[in-house]
Design a protein around this nucleic acid. Structure first.
Length: 351
DNA sequence: ATCCGTATCT
DNA sequence: TAGATACGGA
């Protein structure tokens, strides 16, 4: 994250004019404006991955001061929060920082202030990687140091490819930094994958395309593994086709903003689904398939109730003329599914 | 020797 | 959970 460009900022303010102004200032960002605290929270809960930073006013009509910040911290939403307010009292600023905000800006915001925002994303990412590393070394404090050396007699600590390094003392264990895949890095990752012919989308090639200084093939491989897992899960969950453009669930969340509450969606979807489940073509399919699809359906309802909209984004459209069971058979039959799975996963990216 | 995919670890 | 690491095998 070297500049403002590509930064995903959620701006929350109950003043529409303010939002507009800030939005203009943020024009080189992928920013989302938001007037309502609860809506902001829902966005964060469902699409945390889509944001790098939250910029919010302290006071919102009908809300307690700092309410959004409090909620974000309470729910462990791992994003840097920058507060803003017309209030320029030093106590208010201190209170913000003490509560856990990363910075405090007094309104009206100036462009140069906006231009500093990217730094807080870096700070957050740095903290994340440090935090993780600390946990690890804490857990493996004294005893496991011995454990590790006697662990398997194989490679003790192979150093990774590059890294010229001076090698002052041999005992100095080289600890590789944790890479945090923020939306910027993930964006480059996606971009790379899409620019490569699917069957060549392997760690080495992706790494090369990304061209990020310090990033290793192992980093990419690890992320790729998680990403494929994510795609697979989503494919199973979707089970219906999404009509909108494929955004991998990571890009601009505006196209996901719910038009209906989850319960409304369920009410809308459920009758259609029930109808499908009882339709003659459905009955013709063997019981095993029918049963599997029924359990999926139950699961879907459950998720819709419990996970807010995360399992059924509003842009997923159920085509009423489309036989639901038929669509599912492809990925429900485990028997013939185990062929070139990674290939087909990648393929879905280009849909 | 390189590197991919999967499993496992933290 | 996310990212790192281990390792078998192509």
């Amino acid at each position: 994250m070297k500049s403002l460009e590509g930064l995903n900022v959620l701006v929350v303010d109950d003043d529409a004019t303010c939002l507009k102004i800030i939005g203009k200032m943020l024009r080189s960002c992928k920013y989302i404006e938001c007037i309502d605290v609860n809506e902001a929270l829902n966005l964060l809960r469902s699409y945390l991955k889509c944001f790098d930073l939250v910029l919010t006013d302290i006071t919102m009509t009908g809300m307690k001061d700092f309410q959004l910040l409090d909620c974000i911290l309470q729910e462990n939403i791992d994003l840097p929060v920058v507060m803003m307010s017309v209030d320029d009292k030093i106590e208010t600023m201190i209170k913000s920082i003490q509560k856990g905000a990363y910075f405090y800006l007094t309104k009206p915001l100036k462009m140069e202030q906006i231009m500093t925002l990217w730094q807080f994303v870096m700070v957050k990412n740095y903290e994340k990687s440090i935090g993780k590393r600390d946990n690890i070394s804490q857990n493996s404090m004294t005893p496991s140091l011995i454990d590790q050396s006697s662990r398997k007699g194989k490679h003790i600590m192979k150093t990774h490819g590059k890294q010229p390094m001076k090698e002052n003392k041999k005992v100095l264990k080289e600890i590789n930094p944790i890479v945090v895949w923020d939306s910027y890095l993930h964006g480059k990752f996606i971009e790379a994958i899409q620019s490569i012919v699917p069957h060549r989308a392997v760690p080495k090639n992706i790494l090369e395309k990304m061209n990020v200084p310090g990033l290793t093939r192992e980093n990419v491989a690890s992320h790729l593994q998680k990403f494929r897992l994510y795609i697979k899960k989503r494919k199973e969950k979707d089970f219906y086709r999404t009509l909108g453009g494929d955004n991998h669930g990571f890009s601009n969340p505006t196209q996901f903003v719910p038009l209906k509450t989850p319960s409304q969606m369920v009410q809308q979807i459920a009758p259609k689904m029930q109808q499908k489940m009882l339709t003659p073509t459905t009955k013709a399919i063997n019981f095993k398939t029918y049963y599997k699809s029924w359990t999926k359906y139950q699961l879907m309802l459950f998720n819709a109730h419990n996970n807010s909209l995360s399992s059924i984004p509003s842009n997923i459209h159920i085509e009423s003329s489309q036989p639901v069971i038929l669509m599912n058979r492809n990925h429900m039959n485990d028997e013939n599914a185990s062929e070139g799975s990674n290939q087909s996963d990648i393929d879905t990216l280009n849909d």
